[in-house]
């Protein structure tokens, strides 16, 4: 199970405690997150399913490469970090 942690800047809009979820890709991991916390979808992704311009996601401290289709691989023990970019404020 990958562990997903969220920027505390999301806490005023949604539950942001860390979650352990299964999935081989970032898309799978986030879909598992959205099953439990559907409100988070619109905060992290656009209506077209891409990562929002001013949201960053790191997998094991590496910034993801595919912000459109979220195909970056996630290992069983990965740490996924959802961050608020410093741009966009």
């Amino acid at each position: 199970m990958a562990t997903v942690t969220f920027t505390p800047n999301l806490a005023r809009w949604a539950e942001t405690s860390a979650m352990d979820v299964a999935g081989d890709s970032l898309a799978d991991v986030l879909e598992a997150v959205f099953v439990e916390r559907p409100v988070l979808r619109g905060y992290l992704l656009t209506d077209q399913g891409a990562l929002r311009k001013h949201v960053n996601v790191y997998i094991d401290a590496e910034s993801i490469g595919d912000r459109q289709r979220l195909t970056d691989r996630v290992a069983a023990d990965s740490k996924v970090f959802v961050a608020q970019a410093l741009s966009g404020g």
């Binding site: 999301l10 809009w13 409100v39 905060y43 209506d47 929002r52 966009g88």
Partner: peptide, 30 residues
């Protein structure tokens, strides 16, 4: 129009004392 987290819509039924988030419009996938 949240700088990081997109466009949101909220509704209050008590004159603005409290709000609930409701759906924002979404464009069809394209």
């Amino acid at each position: 129009n949240l700088g990081h987290f997109g466009c949101k819509l909220h509704r209050s039924s008590n004159g603005g004392r409290t709000f609930d988030e409701v759906a924002a419009p979404n464009y069809p996938r394209n």
